[in-house]
Every structure is written in structure tokens, then in C-alpha cells.
């Protein structure tokens, strides 16, 4: 079973959001998503300063046989991409909710985060897709 930490918010397209104390958020792909993709070999992270809309493709993750867009879970401004992924894409496989985050964003509105799935809802979503 894939991990779904209770303190994060989720999207149906398998991204997660962590709210940080300073009001910014970390964004990544879920354990389920990394397992489905397999060993990642390349990640294209967004550049700092870029404004993204909710649902925009803002990063790309590549395995040997597939490339997938990662969608911004909420609207906002990119503070920084996770540059460590440039040389170590496997961080996403190893720690999808930690060192393998994709970017930090400054959310456009806090309310949008509240509209995302919570852990229980995401777990139910995974069960419905299986």
C-alpha cells in the first residue's frame, strides 16, 4: 500500500501540498504516483518567479518509458524549484514527501488549499481508481 501522510493535501492527479509556517507551500507527487511511474531518470522543475494557474502543467517527470506532466495543485508564484532533482531524480522515488518535493510556491489564496482532498479523501480516490 502506498503512503498517504495525514498532514498533507492532495489532488486527483496525484500531487500533494504541504503548508509551511511562513505561508508558502511545498508541492510534490505522491508515493502512489512515483510507484506507478517507476524509476525516475529526469525531472524538469519550474523556475523561480514563474506564475502558475491551478491545473497548469508546471513540471515534467520522466521514467525510462514514460514522461508525465505534473500539474500545479493551486495557483500561485513559484518561489523555487527543487534543484537537487537535477542530479538526483531518484529522490522522488526514495522520499516522495520529503527531499523529493518538486517546488515551493507562494499560494494565490489560502482558501484554494482547503478545497483540495484530505488524506482520507485521497485514499478513497486511490481505492476507486484501482
Amino acid at each position: 500500500m502506498s503512503q498517504v501522510p495525514a498532514d498533507l493535501r492532495y489532488t486527483r492527479s496525484h500531487e500533494w501540498v504541504r503548508q509551511l509556517p511562513d505561508g508558502s507551500v511545498e508541492v510534490g507527487i505522491t508515493d502512489h504516483a512515483q510507484a506507478a511511474l517507476g524509476d525516475l531518470v529526469f525531472v524538469e522543475v519550474p523556475e523561480g518567479g514563474r506564475t502558475v494557474g491551478s491545473g497548469d502543467a508546471f513540471a515534467v517527470v520522466e521514467s525510462v518509458k514514460a514522461a508525465s506532466d505534473v500539474y500545479a495543485p493551486i495557483a500561485g508564484e513559484v518561489i523555487s524549484g527543487n534543484d537537487a532533482l537535477a542530479t538526483r531524480p531518484e529522490l522522488i522515488n526514495e522520499e516522495p514527501y520529503g527531499q523529493g518535493y518538486i517546488a515551493r510556491l507562494r499560494p494565490g489564496s489560502a482558501a484554494e488549499i482547503e478545497g483540495l482532498l484530505d488524506a482520507a479523501q485521497y485514499t478513497a480516490h486511490l481505492a476507486s481508481e484501482a
Binding site: S63, V64, A66, A67
Partner: peptide, 12 residues
């Protein structure tokens, strides 16, 4: 680096 190619990326 096949993930750049048409048979995987199709329209992209």
C-alpha cells in the same frame, strides 16, 4: 532519453 521521442511523448 527516449521519453523525449514521439512514441512516448506523442503530441509533446
Amino acid at each position: 532519453l527516449q521519453a523525449r521521442e514521439q512514441h512516448i511523448r506523442r503530441g509533446k
